[in-house]
């Protein structure tokens, strides 16, 4: 079956790889401060997977020849840990986008990428979207799921406006913001909590996007949750709708129930698919989710999340399986069946 893989990682193996795209000031800054790309060591320690490919050859060898995969969305998370220096963050984001274009996008028509931006300064994020957002091989603006201020906040709306003007969607990817307590309850002492914590944080972001009226203001915006799971969605929406009925006057711009915005505007990738093994429970969950319509396939190469996806696909009919593997993402990103003929909607 044809597939669009919505989350494949790439990363430069050192900042030197980005030097052609950085000014002399930043090259010296990086050299003298001894800044290293650490592969998001807190997020992806050696225990949970290989290093992301740093060259097109490695990517082609390890991912692109997988059967049926027609399009791949590349996500480079290197900028997720660009310290607290907003100027550095903006420079690194630009360098990554240029590196991704040169190293990957220019060499394969089946490749698409997320556009990375400053995660500290909305103003710089807008400038970067203006700089490269017209390049149709970028399909969405990538933000870390962890944030200082929830992403739906009005301070960030200019970023979404700039994205929508260029037909880009927005994606929130697990992790980011090293150095602050990662979970809503504080610092973690095990990787297990940190890993599962991405799902807690994603829930907070869902509340934020809806409550702030982002989808009233940007009715064509879709937000893709990458590597944040999805089994938690139904109970969250039940509670969200219930509370909204009680305190709707606090968010008078919402014309519909929160769950309706979420089902229409959010998508979630299938890695991780942490699901029950019992097929009866899995069928219940699918009914609670109102079917798999929000889900898009992702391998999350090179990271491992277990065998949940296979169990999920087993419970789906042909049409539903095709929606997860292909059509939902194809519609989201405006990808047609033949890479050469595709274009963003």
């Amino acid at each position: 079956m044809d597939a669009i893989d919505c989350d494949v990682h790439c990363a430069p193996d050192s900042y030197e790889a980005l030097f052609p795209h950085l000014s002399e000031y930043w090259r010296q800054y990086i050299t003298e401060a001894g800044i290293r790309v650490n592969g998001l060591a807190h997020a992806y320690p050696r225990g949970v997977g290989a290093t992301a490919p740093s060259t097109y050859e490695a990517l082609a060898d390890r991912v692109l020849d997988r059967r049926g995969v027609r399009f791949v969305i590349l996500n480079c998370l290197t900028g997720f840990e660009t310290h607290r220096n907003a100027y550095f963050g903006a420079a690194v984001a630009s360098a990554i986008n240029d590196w991704v274009r040169e190293e990957f996008l220019a060499r394969d028509e089946g490749l698409r990428a997320s556009l990375v931006v400053s995660t500290i300064s909305p103003e710089d994020a807008v400038a970067e979207i203006e700089r490269v957002g017209e390049d149709r091989r970028f399909v969405q603006v990538l933000l870390p799921v962890r944030s200082d201020l929830p992403w739906g906040h009005k301070n960030n709306h200019a970023v979404f406006a700039a994205a929508r003007e260029r037909g880009l969607q927005v994606a929130l990817h697990a992790w980011g913001r090293a150095g602050k307590a990662p979970t809503p309850s504080g610092f973690t002492t095990t990787y297990l909590e940190d890993y599962v914590g991405n799902q807690s944080i994603a829930q907070g972001q869902v509340l934020s996007f809806v409550s702030e009226g982002v989808f009233e203001r940007f009715p064509d915006l879709r937000v893709v949750l990458i590597e944040c799971g999805f089994a938690w969605l139904p109970p969250l929406l039940w509670r969200f709708d219930k509370d909204w009925k009680g305190v709707w006057r606090e968010v008078p711009w919402l014309g519909r129930r929160p769950s309706e915005y979420v089902r229409e505007h959010f998508r979630a990738t299938t890695a991780p698919a942490h699901l029950p093994r019992d097929p009866v429970l899995l069928d219940q969950l699918l009914e609670m989710l109102d079917g798999p319509g929000m889900l898009t396939y992702a391998s999350d190469y090179p990271h491992e999340h277990g065998d949940g996806l296979a169990g999920l696909l087993d419970r789906l009919g042909e049409e539903q399986r095709r929606s997860v593997m292909w059509s939902t993402a194809a519609e989201l990103y405006g990808l047609a069946g033949n890479p050469a003929a595709s274009s963003r909607a």
Partner: peptide, 13 residues
């Protein structure tokens, strides 16, 4: 302390 995603705006959240 709203660690994680940061401080939300509304009581609803």
């Amino acid at each position: 302390d709203h660690r994680g995603p940061g401080y939300p705006s509304y009581y609803l959240e």
